[in-house]
Design a protein around this nucleic acid. Structure first.
Length: 822
RNA sequence: GCCGGCGUACUCCAAUGGUUAGAGAGAGCCGCUUUAAGAGCGGUCAAGUGCGGGUUCGAGUCCCGCCGCCGGCACCA
């Protein structure tokens, strides 16, 4: 392989035998059309058009390193869909931008001494080129870049609005801390106890941080009314939100008149079986109630719990450990005096951080009771009888036993009865708890949006006034990756004056989680230049909400949940007129290499460039879409790319063939065209690119072997069908075949369902499910006629062998099954 | 452990409950073509659908129980 920048595998010869034609040279035609489309503004979408507007967004990337095959896998099929919808007659806005803040830029600065801004700019420039080389039909005039002050000032503005509305707040809480990135993380960014970014085990730290009150929308976020979203994403979000119904009840602590322990339970019906209580080690009452004799043991246990990583603490397999506080509570239902323990299997962050332990009916409490010799009392019985000596916790339903006046009550009824009884006596209330936590948005990192508040000795926390936004991220900063927020070391940034009293004040030095940036970017695309508001309402009204959204399944919870929350919050603030940002969502599966997720750190990244150089972007686009169902993902294996290359060469050869108007039409080819149009259309509606391409391959083979006028029409249709998939070759052939304008401005071919059908069909004649004969009959033959025809078949008669016919099943145009008595 | 998804030729994948499981592609093999070729054309080999039951006139497809792989959740009270 030598010569120019483009070396083709094997000549790419055109295939018509009699005429020598020019070979297919994507290296020439692809850059030519890319430049042409850019200069003629083909992808620049007008806000007003005679066609209906259609807003189609695919998730914007984080411009770290280069585009790899995984990004093509996300992008090429989305671009194909956007082009298809355009040809279907819509004015499609298909924008792109960059999720440009993030820790990678900062790490690059630390490792290589490049400023994050410079690193990001360089990457974005490269990415734009790569998008171009892929042939993506992006309206670049609407590009959104989140690290520019024009953009992130609106993060700050929204923060102030949220603050006014009580949706943003500052609180001290045990939060997730990544020791390697030296920053806190939101719950969603902790995957199996590891930092989502760097896989470092996360630990808990008590810190004062900023939160967004996403839990205020927990119930609404559980609803997906009117949304066309994949089932699995909805289920993942529902699991994540984790709604559970129960009751919050409190038991008084003996000897502490004003202390009561509040706990949440989903099983109020088991309350008579609460033989002890357990507090989380971090529970605020622990120091107050621990008896002096237990103080030392308690301190040691709490200290250990705090240093353990989340992965250790939340492992379900580890033995249940804990320490007795020496204090007692009163189970106000059973009247019993019950000990109060602490144990790390109770989480400070869920419910109230305390539980009533019912060892007989909870596996964890059972294990803990066994390990520490605590009493186990059966209060729910499957058969309604009392038993002694439970072998294991019984967590199922049954009748209440040993439960005073409630004995005999079915447990399901008891849940409600006990909860309302607790309410009546003023010690509790029915309650709902969520697994979802508020969104921790503070980050102790540099490359993000400064949180717009100042701290004043006189006035406390003071929001930066709107007219002083943006709070610009200072450029001069020492980045070491150590020692807390980098901004804290920039005196010129930190030291400011209080907007209220004018006295000296200090700025907040944490920045925002970058998921804040991506939670609303789709509102900015319609007019990213507007500086008077976060969006241009007049223009946005023509587009929003997003009609179709595509992106990786890895964002099923993180980005998609945050974006839904921000949408609802902005709606309630009066800025948006819809409830959900993305009406229709489809997620591509993950493309892996040698069964492992592609990532730069694992060193298994596959670059598209060499394939583009060898086969062209169209072949690679096609191959990526041909590999299998897009929503499933796949293992990268380029060995089949020859197939799509051969296909495009065949299309090229066909496309350059002479037009013929003489001769008779080929009815079979005409039908094949109709069938293919229907198949490709249906498949594109369902994102089934692989089968759509297979259908086009089939058609190309049929055209190859055909001649005459039908061939011309078939080829024209094929070029149109191929346009969304392989935009460059389709454009080139469209032009060479004398088409006017761009192929991408043509109407999607329509099909005639009746013309797609064969005139004659083969109907199978079965006897007892076994095929005995085949009948060639006109399509649409009636049921009775089919039955008669089958029963007239000598082979069928022979197979029946004189046995009485029980019944005859007829499927139109398919089969007749004669069922005999046996 | 719980919840999803998937399991079909050597490989990637097709198949509204309906013909003898094959649309398409790769690999292999054979032939043709070509000055030659790693190009092109045609052909061919190859699974009875992870396992076991069931429903049905008919099951890859529906149901039940297992097994395996992938993903999500997981001491959440």
């Amino acid at each position: 392989m030598d010569g120019g920048p483009f070396d083709y595998p094997h000549g790419g010869a055109a295939m018509t035998s009699e005429t020598k034609t020019e070979r297919y040279a994507p290296g020439t035609i692809e850059p030519k059309w890319q430049a042409h489309w850019a200069s003629t503004g083909l992808d620049a979408t007008p806000d007003d058009s005679d066609k209906p507007n259609y807003y189609f967004v695919t998730m914007f990337p984080y411009p770290s390193g280069d585009m790899h095959i995984g990004h093509w896998y996300a992008m090429a099929p989305s671009d194909c869909e956007a082009r298809y919808i355009r040809m279907k007659g819509h004015n499609v806005l298909f924008p792109m931008g960059f999720d440009a803040f993030g820790i990678n830029a900062e790490n690059a600065a630390i490792d290589r001494g490049i400023h994050p801004a410079a690193w990001t700019d360089k990457n974005m420039a490269h990415w734009r080129e790569q998008f171009r080389s892929l042939g993506a039909s992006i309206d670049w005039r609407r590009e959104v870049v989140t690290c520019y002050p024009e953009y992130y000032r609106w993060n700050q503005w929204m923060f102030l609005k949220f603050l006014e509305k009580g949706l943003a707040y500052r609180a001290t809480a045990p939060v997730n801390w990544c020791p390697r990135d030296e920053t806190v993380l939101a719950n969603e960014q902790v995957i199996n106890g590891l930092c989502e970014r760097c896989d470092t085990p996360v630990v808990k730290k008590d810190l004062t941080q900023w939160f967004y009150k996403i839990t205020a929308y927990a119930d609404e976020l559980l609803r997906f009314d009117g949304l066309d979203w994949p089932e699995r994403v909805r289920v993942m979000q529902q699991n994540w939100i984790g709604r559970s119904e129960g009751a919050e009840i409190q038991f008084p602590v003996e000897g502490h008149r004003d202390a009561a322990i509040r706990f949440f339970t989903t099983r109020p019906d088991t309350i008579y079986g609460a033989t002890f209580m357990v507090l989380a080690p971090e529970h605020p009452l622990v120091p107050a109630i621990t008896v002096p004799a237990q103080k030392a043991a308690m301190d040691a246990y709490v200290a250990t719990a705090r240093t353990e990583s989340e992965i250790e603490r939340t492992s379900a397999e580890r033995p249940k450990t804990g320490v007795d506080t020496g204090a007692f509570a009163t189970n106000v239902f059973s009247g019993q005096r019950i000990p109060i323990w602490i144990a790390d299997y109770v989480l400070a962050s869920y419910g109230t951080g305390a539980i009533m332990a019912v060892p007989a009916h909870d596996e964890r409490d059972f294990a803990f009771a066994k390990a520490n010799g605590l009493p186990i009392k059966e209060v729910i019985s499957a058969d309604g009888e009392e038993h002694a000596g439970l072998e294991a916790a019984y967590t199922g339903p049954g009748r209440m036993v040993r439960s005073g006046p409630y004995s005999g009550t079915p447990s399901e009824v008891g849940k409600r009865t006990i909860a309302s009884e607790a309410k009546k006596t003023g010690i509790g209330t029915p309650s709902v708890t969520y697994r979802l936590r508020d969104w921790l948005i503070s980050r102790q990192r540099y490359w993000g949006t400064p949180i717009p508040v100042v701290y004043c000795d006189t006035d406390g926390i003071v929001p930066v006034p709107e007219d002083q936004l943006p709070v610009v991220l200072p450029r001069d900063v020492q980045l070491t990756g150590r020692g807390g927020s980098p901004l804290a070391k920039v005196d010129a940034f930190v030291n400011t004056t209080c907007p209220k009293c004018g006295g000296p004040a200090k700025r907040e030095t944490d920045t925002m989680d970058t998921f804040v940036d991506s939670s609303w970017y789709v509102y900015r695309y319609p007019d990213p230049k507007i500086d008077s508001f976060f969006m241009n309402v007049d223009v946005a009204k023509k587009w929003l909400p997003v009609r179709r959204y595509t992106g990786g399944i890895e964002h099923a919870i993180l980005h998609l949940l945050y974006a839904r929350f921000v949408c609802k919050a902005l709606r309630d603030l009066g800025y948006l007129w819809f409830d959900e940002p993305f009406l229709h969502l489809r997620n591509q599966g993950t493309i892996v290499f040698k069964s492992r997720k592609m990532s730069k750190s694992r060193g298994n990244v596959v670059a598209p460039d060499e394939y583009v150089a060898r086969y062209g972007a169209d072949t690679l686009r096609l191959f990526i879409m041909f590999m299998g169902p897009w929503t499933e993902g796949n293992d990268w294996d380029a060995s089949g790319i020859e197939g799509t290359w051969r296909f495009l060469n065949r299309v090229w050869g066909i496309g350059l063939g002479e037009r013929t108007s003489s001769g008779t039409r080929d009815a079979e080819l005409d039908r094949a065209v109709q069938r293919t149009i229907k198949k490709v259309t249906d498949d594109l509606e369902g994102y089934r690119f692989n089968t759509a391409i297979a259908a086009m391959m089939e058609l190309s083979t049929a055209i190859f072997h055909a001649a005459g006028p039908s061939r011309d029409g078939a080829t024209d249709a094929l070029v149109l069908l191929l346009a969304p998939f392989a935009p460059h070759i389709a454009e080139e052939l469209w032009e060479r075949r004398g088409g006017t304008g761009s192929v991408h401005r043509q109407a999607w071919p329509a099909y005639d369902a009746s013309a797609a059908k064969d005139a004659v069909v083969t109907v199978v004649a079965q006897v007892n499910g076994k095929v005995r004969d085949r009948l060639e009959l006109p399509a649409g033959t009636g049921e009775e006629a089919l039955k008669r025809a089958a029963l007239a078949s000598a082979k069928v008669v022979q197979a029946i062998g004189g046995k009485p016919v029980d019944r005859v099943i007829v499927v139109a145009d398919k089969l007749v099954n004669v069922v005999t008595e046996r």
